[in-house]
Amino acid sequence: MIQLVESSAPRSVRVRVLRQDAPGEESYWQHFDVPYEPNMNVISVLQKIAALAHAEDGQPVPPVAWDCSCLEEVCGSCTMLINGRTRMACSALVDNLLDEGDEIELRPMTKFPVVRDLCVDRSRLFRSLERVKAWVPVDGSYDHGPGPRVSPEEQEDAYPLATCISCGCCLEACPQFTKIEMVRRDDESQEAFEQRRREAFDEGFVGPHAVSQAMLFNAHPIGKMIADERMESLTSQGGIQMCGNAQNCVAVCPKHIPLTRSIARAGRAATVWAIKKLFDR
């Protein structure tokens, strides 16, 4: 499909970017005209915009700010809304995007506070991993020999869940995950602000990525030793009960992680957990 486009290749690509100079400021559209090259992706478009340093009308403008690092869809940095769809900028190929329309539209994700332009603050995503204790609670790093034996089936079940790149696509698409934007007060210390923000995060939905991580570690032979703690977290405020089963998460995951399977497992486990708690009282 890439090859087919070349014959009718355009000379330039029109790109419109929703910009915002800083948190709390008004956003605005800016248009850029970028010279076309075969096999371009959105990253190379943004690199060209940075090098051009002027908008379509010739006015000098500061480069668009965006996050990226690996450029091969494994670091999870470059998530944005491209032609309205949440996806990774590195693997969004321009030729495919031009099949969707004459110009390319870039916007920041809407569920996270904008830092600047296409950069958003995704610290809540990582806070969720703390909430569900997404780790194996080992004694320490001293030598205790190998880990437990694992069947190939168990490994093949766990591995896809372990490939979550924390990009946030699932959170952007989830109707139950709504934006929490906090502003530091003038009289507030950084530590006090972070504490207040953490508390606000903890009231919101933990998100499909974290539910899936909880299931990954609850299935691990050592990880499951604190399965109860994870279930406690998943059944408290902002837990699994908030999932509305829209199934958007699994549709947008760039790594095709079976998120809805994890959510279904978590739902069943939550029921068992609730009954167990009832009888343990």
């Binding site: 780790w135 194996v136 080992v138 790093s141 030598d143 205790h144 020999g145 190998p146 880990g147 034996r149 694992v150 069947s151 190939p152 168990e154 490994q155 766990a158 591995y159 372990a162 570690f217 691990h220 050592i222 990880g223």
Partner: peptide, 22 residues
């Protein structure tokens, strides 16, 4: 050997043989 054992304990999903070894 110690380092790979440690990473195994930390939960790295290493590919497995049919018998369950790395």
């Amino acid at each position: 050997p110690r380092i790979v054992d440690l990473m195994d304990r930390l939960g790295v999903p290493f590919n497995r043989t049919p018998e369950g070894f790395r």
